[in-house]
Design a protein around this nucleic acid. Structure first.
Lengths: 150, 150
DNA sequence: TATTGTTATACTCTATAACTATA
DNA sequence: TATAGTTATAGAGTATAACAATA
């Protein structure tokens, strides 16, 4: 492992750069963790939100997770086609679909969350509980910001 | 701003989830910060590395930044076409191209780094210097990990 | 045989605009 | 007029496989 120059220069002190690299490392390991399930990061997110808010509609799920309405369509289709969520017309608002997790969805979600727990442990090996909590807190402060949309 | 339920359930304690959201927020504001320059995150990264390691070749730049060889080709083409970097056959290894930043590239990089500094300040408003350093340190530990490639 | 750069390709994520049907 | 969902489309990031030229 003769680590070469690896001269990132002015990128070194940039949080944005390291956020990108850390996100990439997490995403790569996440994909490995999900192998065989057919699930991806976004799908697990949607399944979790639907599980926690039975009867929620697509738009609301998208708003919670930061996914555009247009992009929700095929994602929900994937989950419905896989039998993981059920979609019925909302009786109270016939424009909307009411989403609910199925038994198969619950089983899949449980499997995914177990895999994700192991994945997080791998990625955060060596982190103290205080460090993990601090990282969550700092990331939370960033994500609750949106200067671009101001 | 009647914040709705926003029930993310089991996603709440996951570092990976918040990393994704924080990365998204950073990327969106980065794009706004670069408006009018024609530059993107990856291009600034490449320009910075070439600037700091004159004569470096494509493969090495990719290795430093975590970009696959195949994807480097069009990125380098963009920068060459824009007149920001010069590409000549490496005299010592005629398979490789030697990359150098041009004067125009130096000017562009200076402009971009100034915009990025302002962008980072926006995104990290309210962070103490110690918090910023801590975040950099924790992210650095994550990115220097690659369980998937083990 | 390994490496540099290349081409071709494919999948995912993200974004916008325009449409429909309901409200 | 506004909202829920849809369709079509486009740009960007990332990944693999196969190839030519050179080492």
């Amino acid at each position: 492992m003769s680590r070469a120059k690896n001269n990132i220069g002015e990128l070194g002190p940039l949080v944005g750069y390291h956020l990108r690299r850390a996100f990439g490392a997490f995403a790569a390991d996440f994909a490995v963790a999900m192998e065989g399930t057919g699930m991806r990061q976004v799908l697990v997110g949607i399944l979790t939100v639907v599980s926690g808010s039975p009867g929620i509609n697509q738009g609301a799920v998208g708003r919670v997770l930061g996914i555009k309405r247009a992009n929700m369509v095929s994602l929900i289709n994937e989950l419905v086609d896989a039998g993981l969520i059920a979609r019925v017309v909302d009786p109270g608002d016939r424009r909307a679909f009411s989403l609910n997790i199925t038994d198969a969805g619950r089983a899949m979600l449980a499997d995914c969350l177990a895999r994700i727990a192991a994945h997080e442990q791998r990625m955060l090996a060596g982190f103290s509980e205080a460090e993990r909590a601090m990282l969550l807190e700092l990331l939370g402060r960033i994500e609750r910001r949106d200067p671009a949309a101001a």
